[in-house]
């Protein structure tokens, strides 16, 4: 019985789950420096989980709630900060799913064969000036965010975990 349950769990993870290694390079205009973080990102049915193994920190966004852990202990984030992170994650989920309808509602979309440029329509345009996605053989390779304050964030999807 337990075996069957375990198998079901594994299968469901394979069906819904998409886990990747990624590296995130943040260029900070104010200090003219880049910082790199490595981690794992796991998309599931209605959320995502990001793990930074080196810093032993993790973020799980599921069902409109955000859980942040440092060394496996939950740490509370302030409302404003967690709202910002959740909206950012919403964009990541949207890009991962490739919901074209919603995407064109929120962004002005310019597509070439491999690169997609997204320019936000709503309130986000106060923070993000544009986004660039590179897809290779339908797989997402990187996401670049160009922010209004001249900072840049590049998320390189290195490879799929499974």
């Amino acid at each position: 019985m337990l075996k069957i349950l375990l198998q079901l769990l594994i299968y469901s993870n394979i069906l819904f789950g998409n886990s990747y290694y990624f590296s995130e390079v943040r260029y900070n205009f104010a200090i003219d420096k880049s910082v790199e973080h490595k981690g794992e990102i796991d998309f599931f049915e209605d959320g995502l989980r990001i793990l930074y193994p080196d810093a032993n920190k993790s973020l799980e966004y599921k069902n409109e709630s955000l859980i942040y852990k440092e060394s496996n202990k939950e740490v509370e984030l302030n409302e404003m900060q967690s709202q910002q992170i959740m909206r950012y994650f919403d964009i990541l989920i949207l890009i991962h799913k490739g919901d074209d309808d919603l995407m064109s509602e929120m962004f002005e979309v310019n597509k070439t064969s491999t690169i997609t440029i997204l320019k936000p329509n709503g309130m986000i345009k106060n923070y993000i000036s544009s986004m660039e996605l590179l897809k290779d053989k339908k797989k997402l390779k990187y996401i670049k965010l160009f922010l209004q304050n001249s900072d840049e964030i590049t998320i390189n999807i290195d490879d799929e975990i499974r």
Partner: peptide
Amino acid sequence: QSKNIFYSAIDKNDPLKLFSFDN
């Protein structure tokens, strides 16, 4: 900026965080 795992933009209008706003 280098330590934080989360990205948070610097507010160059109020770098000392003297103003705070409750939503």
